[in-house]
Simulated scan of single mutants.
Amino acid sequence: MSQQLLPNCNGHCLAVTFLVFVIIAAFVGKTSASSQIDVDEDLKHLIGRCHRDEANLDAYNDCMKQVFNDLRAYFTTGVPSYNIQPFDPHHSSFVELRRGDPHGPGSLKLILRNVSEYGWSHSEVTKFHSEPKDQRIVYAQYFPEKSLEGEYEFLAKILGTELRRQGHWNLTLYDYSQTTSVRRVGEPGSLLKVHMEVDHIGRMELHIGNLLQGQPLNQLADGVINSMWQLGLPFVRPMINELVSTAFTDIFNESFRYFPLEKFLS
Rank of each mutant, 00 (worst) to 15 (best):
N61Y: 15
P86W: 05
G78K: 04
H51E: 09
F68H: 13
K65W: 03
S92I: 13
F75A: 12
P89L: 03
D70N: 06
H90R: 15
F87P: 01
F75R: 10
F75N: 11
T76H: 02
D53G: 01
V95G: 02
D62Q: 07
A73P: 06
S81I: 03
Y82N: 11
H45K: 14
A73N: 11
G48W: 13
R49L: 07
L46F: 14
A59Y: 08
F94T: 14
V79A: 09
R49Q: 13
R99T: 07
K65S: 04
V79K: 09
E96N: 10
R49N: 13
E96S: 05
D53Q: 08
H45G: 03
L57K: 10
K44I: 10
H45P: 01
D62N: 07
Y74N: 05
D101K: 02
E54D: 15
R72P: 05
F87C: 02
D70I: 01
V95C: 03
P102C: 02
D88W: 02
D101I: 00
V79R: 14
D88K: 02
F87H: 09
P86M: 03
R99S: 02
G104N: 12
K44S: 04
V79N: 13
G78D: 01
A59D: 12
D70K: 06
R49S: 02
T76Q: 04
G100M: 10
V95E: 08
N61K: 10
A55P: 04
D62C: 00
P80W: 00
R52K: 05
K65Q: 07
R49Y: 09
I47V: 14
S81N: 03
R99W: 13
P105D: 13
N61Q: 14
E54F: 10
D70T: 01
G106S: 15
G78C: 01
H45S: 06
H90P: 12
Y60F: 09
R49G: 07
K44Q: 10
F68W: 05
N61P: 08
D62S: 06
H103F: 03
G100V: 05
Y82W: 10
Q85L: 14
H45Q: 10
C50H: 07
I84Y: 10
G78V: 02
Y74K: 10
T77W: 04
V67C: 05
R52C: 00
D101L: 01
F94K: 14
Y60W: 07
L57V: 05
P80C: 01
S81D: 08
D62L: 05
R99Y: 06
F68L: 06
F94D: 15
P86Y: 03
D53W: 05
C63L: 11
L46P: 10
R52P: 00
F94L: 11
L71K: 08
